[in-house]
């Protein structure tokens, strides 16, 4: 009888030890998964700035707000004047849509679709009078910009400089 009780007690002790180890391991896995999920959620935050530029052949002028871009634009385009009409920064989650109003009843929609190999995949739509006129899919290098241009506006053309940044 005494042996039976001893065996039961040993079995209980062993079961308790197993339970403790099991719960410790489960806690560890849970914490790791939680940190992975929170890390991914953090990585999904994408910041984008859309600068709307008016390029014309007027008196030579370079807007101070376009210091970083002026040389690039002048190396390609014939225009002499570059004015910054507006600048807007959007903080977006993956899959969400950022909207920016543009001159001439136009608007720009920006959808970040994911990050891969240090490049942010964007879907960009330009609408005129709510009708889609231009769409493109790009893979923008992190911390870089792309310029989209072409629509004519007030004796010149509109350029949209779009930047993308993610952690």
């Amino acid at each position: 009888m005494a042996i039976y009780f001893k065996q039961t007690a040993t079995f209980r002790q062993s079961a308790n030890r197993h339970k403790k180890i099991l719960s410790a391991l489960f806690s560890m896995v849970f914490i790791i998964l939680l940190s992975v999920i929170s890390h991914e959620a953090e990585a999904a935050a994408i910041t984008s700035t859309v600068r709307v530029i008016h390029a014309t052949s007027d008196t030579p002028f370079m807007d101070p707000g376009l210091k970083d871009l002026g040389h690039e634009l002048q190396s390609v385009f014939k225009y002499t004047s570059y004015r910054l009409i507006s600048s807007r920064t959007l903080a977006m989650a993956e899959g969400s849509t950022g909207r920016v109003s543009l001159p001439g009843d136009r608007s720009l929609e920006l959808i970040p679709k994911g990050v891969e190999n240090n490049r942010i995949r964007f879907s960009i739509r330009i609408l005129k009078n709510d009708k889609q006129v231009f769409t493109t899919e790009i893979q923008l290098r992190n911390n870089s910009t792309i310029t989209i241009g072409g629509p004519d506006f007030k004796n010149g053309y509109l350029l949209f400089n779009i930047s993308g940044k993610t952690k």
């Binding site: 330009i126 889609q132 769409t135 899919e137 790009i138 893979q139 923008l140 290098r141 792309i146």
Partner: peptide, 13 residues
């Protein structure tokens, strides 16, 4: 490498 890789372009252009 280019600042952006353009994978598609479409629209009323």
């Amino acid at each position: 490498s280019p600042s952006a890789i353009v994978t598609s372009v479409n629209g009323d252009i």
